[in-house]
Design a protein around this nucleic acid. Structure first.
Lengths: 208, 208
DNA sequence: GAGGCTAGTGACAGCCACTGACAGTTGACA
DNA sequence: TGTCAACTGTCAGTGGCTGTCACTAGCCTC
């Protein structure tokens, strides 16, 4: 962020990001062309593609921040904690502290609406799931490391991480279709769902 | 399959499907153009798109069969079975009986290689995950129905189905990178992983 | 502070997936 | 056998994305 050149670049990137997200959430992802985004920032389409690898890539700029934030939280957990407990605390802590990280780039409110848009747009939702699965692979390796097992011989790290991720995804999905979307809401929902999953798996639903 | 016209259509469709999968698995999905597929069956590109909604769509023709097969298996489970047990038996039964259904369209071996290709191609893998999540939504509704709960008020159906699906996905992924790919192998792997997930979630990994 | 260097950009041409419109052809069926 | 409908090919166009090339504006050295 030293030279004028770098500041200019940063400004162009930020402008493209903001413009893209704004257009996406107002008129929809599919109905927004890259030409449109570039034009609204007054650069050529070619320049857009020098900042973002693809149209999809812009949409996931902020989600990428939150994923990294989460992974870092997992890394920082004390190693004596059982895996599930470490994961649980990591997600909840992440939701508590993510807002500052986001606000540096876009208003949190815009991010939340982007998130909803991703869940509602099939092409983006697919990409979202794939990204999550990549994150899970990373987390599985961290868990394996913590527990001192080889993830390619012992399936437990990937199993635990996948099961945990599944619960998080159900939560997000529920949150994304609801009215009340705030960071607080999804945090509470996550905690609640994580509490319910144990009984749901083992319990008999048809008794009081 | 009565009239000549219908038989001709069927033949074109089958030829396109076979040609596409063959090209995909030999030279890769990304390196295969729709023009190439159409040319190798001697029809116009336009005709290809009259049979398949998209290039992606051909790749998932057979997976779609297996998904439907699985959903049907779940529907047929006796209602007194606990949810997890019903799901478990459904996947395993599906793997036992799927081969006939596939063989009507393509050789099972080609299907298995297609499956590996899907797992190895990011764009297809993303689509695969989205399709699975749609299937899970359907299954969740079936489970909710069986248990007599409202899936929009009670999160348990979606939770159980998502957790179960996560285990299946870890299994598939493991299978897809391995050497030994046969239907028998993935069936056994699935059974084994399902057995391990309970202990992995609750147990302490660091003791004997 | 003049001049060379280079990162960043725009303009243009081209590939590929996909779509709409229209016209030609070929089976279905009376 | 002639009419109708289904199926197909051709063509033109859009949108995402990439390579190339020339140009400009900020940087850095002497």
């Amino acid at each position: 962020m030293e030279t004028l050149r770098e500041r200019k670049k940063q400004r162009t990137r930020d402008a493209l990001l903001r413009a893209a997200l704004e257009l996406f959430v107002t008129q929809g992802y599919e109905h927004t062309t890259v030409d449109e985004i570039a034009a609204s920032v007054d650069v050529s389409q070619r320049t857009f593609f020098r900042y973002f690898a693809s149209k999809e890539d812009v949409a996931f700029f902020v989600p990428r921040l939150t994923e990294e934030h989460y992974v870092e939280a997992v890394r920082r957990r004390p190693p004596e904690e059982p895996p599930l407990e470490a994961l649980r605390r990591s997600v909840l802590d992440s939701w508590d502290t993510i807002e500052q990280a986001i606000e540096r780039y876009v208003p949190v409110e815009l991010f939340l609406r982007t998130y909803k848009m991703i869940e509602a747009t099939p092409a983006l939702f697919a990409a979202h799931l794939r990204r999550q699965s990549e994150t899970e692979e990373e987390i599985a390796r961290i868990v394996a490391e913590r527990e001192g097992v080889d993830p390619d011989r012992d399936p437990r790290p990937r199993l635990v991480v996948a099961v945990f991720g599944a619960v998080v995804r159900v939560t997000e999905r529920h949150w994304s279709v609801g009215e009340d979307f705030s960071v607080t809401t999804i945090r509470q929902l996550t905690a609640s769902y994580l509490d319910q999953v144990g009984p749901a798996l083992t319990g008999n639903w048809r008794e009081g």
